[in-house]
Amino acid sequence: MNNLLSHARRARGLLLPALLVAAWEVASHQGASQAYAFVPLSVIGQGLTELIRNGDLLISTLASLQRTCIGLLIGVIAGLLVGAAMALSAIAERLLAPLYHMLRQVPILGLIPLIALWFGSQEGAKLLIVSLAAFYPMTLNTFEGFTHIDRRYREVARVLEWNTWQVFTQVLLPGALRSIANGILHALAFAWVSSVGSELFLSTGSGLGNLMMNAEAGARMEIVVIGVVCIGLMGYAMNQLFSRLTRHLLRWRDI
């Protein structure tokens, strides 16, 4: 009974999307002026099978994904180092913080023209953008994780007369872990968006962004729609995967 009710509820949530899809379908049959913007569902379906069959979708997704992963790795490592250095050393903070906060003000995609002029529009330039996008939130969260550790824990360490290494591994690192995990989650989202974003601007190579830009140039709305859905789904899936993973790994921490 309860189960039935909750199913009915969920079904009501599908009503609005269904109506919108229906409206889309109707709009697509309203003559030539809108035909290129609102393509019929059947065309989207054909586009999807075509993209799957010729492997374009897989290749593009993997290319974007690979760039996201490498950039994420670079950005996370750099962010961890810089964030921890700024948090643990006053001198490092004095020197690094002003540069970091200055650079951070520029929207990451706004840097693309500059990066393109300096480093060309090859894979290296894109990786730099993705790494930077991951680096910003990672640094901030690492810094906050290390600086917001409860003073009482540090005092315990002092009472027990631990050395610096022990304090770092026993107090600072575990204390900052949740914030660091949060930073990786943010970094992941930014890396994914900027990976796709960089492909929109730098047309060499492959990726979901390139797929969409080419489709836009050819007015292939169905491929653009598939690209958008794919980007949203992948972003959501990675977010879920990672937040479940951290919840599992950090289950010893109270939330």
Partner: peptide, 26 residues
Amino acid sequence: EVYCAPMFHVLRQVPSIALIPMFILV
């Protein structure tokens, strides 16, 4: 909430950047 929340939470997953090509076409 019942009618709009599911769609809202799906749509907000789509990054604005990814919509640029689509918006240009439309």
